[in-house]
Amino acid sequence: MSSKAKVARIALSASAAALGSIATYWTLLALRQGHILFDARKHPVVHLSDDFSTYSHTVPGGMVRGYVYHPQGEEALQDLFIYFAGRGEDVRATAQALHWLPEGFGFAAINYRGVADSEGHPSEVASVQDACQFANHLRRALPNARLHVVGRSLGTGVAIQLVARQSFSSLQLVTPYDSMLEVAKRRFPLVPLSLLLRHQFNSLAHSREVAAKTQVLLAETDDVVLPERSEKLIAAWPTPVSVQTIPGSNHHSIMGLEATWLHLIDFALTTVLPEPKAA
């Protein structure tokens, strides 16, 4: 065999190996994308105080678990934040920041399937189904509370689809995106995501059905959800939307800052109708 033929054979083998590796990588992404997208893994146990009550419902593979914070008791709740977390976030850890909530405010959240103490297989469809079921439970359990939906990062896609299906007092989106497909393209530039990605969280499309009063909170610096992804969603929003940037925040720190919670609280309070004046 000539030297040229040997070089060609080696190059062909290398190309075949590279293509095989790419195909394997794409297959792994296709099969495991739910776990990758939601960062479905267990976390160290976070112990909560007696101010929380627990929630659960059965899903294929186990239970979805959540928590409701009502420090003055359920009867005293006037406003309740229903929170949908970011990727890999354990809502029990986020609940450590609730000392900023004033009297009359509560907090409710579930962990996505497969994340933290919830079981089952995560997916876009499952997360929205679980959100609807959780919201229905809260309406029955707390009929006198005003319900405000809050989503962060990945959870903004869940929050928007929930509010497109049910009525709430307000919707607040922290570091939102127009679609998960567009966000993922930046991380996986060589993958045909439009063909492989099943959980696209097309918030741009679902937002057309949203009628709730809406606020968007942006991080001062964000290298996960780039500003253009949020700006495209904001520009297409069907109703007037308040937009605030949290000073000194980034994509990961924003929910741990007092300023974020004060904006959430203030906006929720502006949705409360004033008492009618006496005749």
Rank of each mutant, 00 (worst) to 15 (best):
K185A: 02
Q33G: 06
F105W: 15
E119F: 04
L162E: 05
Q33Y: 03
L31Q: 13
A268R: 00
T58P: 00
D79Y: 01
A236C: 12
Y69P: 01
Q215P: 00
G248L: 01
V272F: 01
F105M: 04
G155W: 07
V272Y: 00
I22L: 15
L269F: 03
R187Y: 13
H35K: 13
D79R: 13
T27P: 06
T27D: 10
G34K: 03
I265G: 02
T27H: 13
R146T: 04
E275G: 11
T27S: 15
P192C: 08
Y112F: 10
A131R: 08
E258Y: 01
P240C: 03
N111E: 10
S2D: 15
R187K: 09
K185W: 00
A30T: 11
G120S: 08
I22F: 15
L226C: 07
Y177F: 15
E75N: 14
G248P: 00
E119H: 07
V158L: 09
G73F: 14
G157D: 08
P238L: 13
G248F: 05
Q215E: 07
R32K: 14
S242M: 12
A23F: 08
G104S: 13
L28T: 13
N111K: 06
K232R: 15
S127V: 14
L204N: 10
V272N: 05
L19M: 11
L197D: 01
I10N: 09
N250W: 06
E231C: 11
V59S: 01
H35S: 14
L190M: 14
A211L: 15
F38N: 09
I110D: 07
Q72D: 14
F81R: 04
I110E: 08
K277W: 10
L262I: 11
D79Q: 15
A235M: 09
R113F: 00
P143D: 02
P192Q: 11
G104K: 09
I234D: 02
R146Y: 00
M255W: 00
H206L: 13
L19Q: 06
Q33P: 08
N202A: 12
A268T: 02
W237A: 14
K277H: 13
A85R: 04
V183K: 08
H70Q: 09
V150W: 12
P176E: 11
P192G: 10
P71S: 14
V125T: 14
L37C: 07
G248T: 02
P238S: 14
G256C: 06
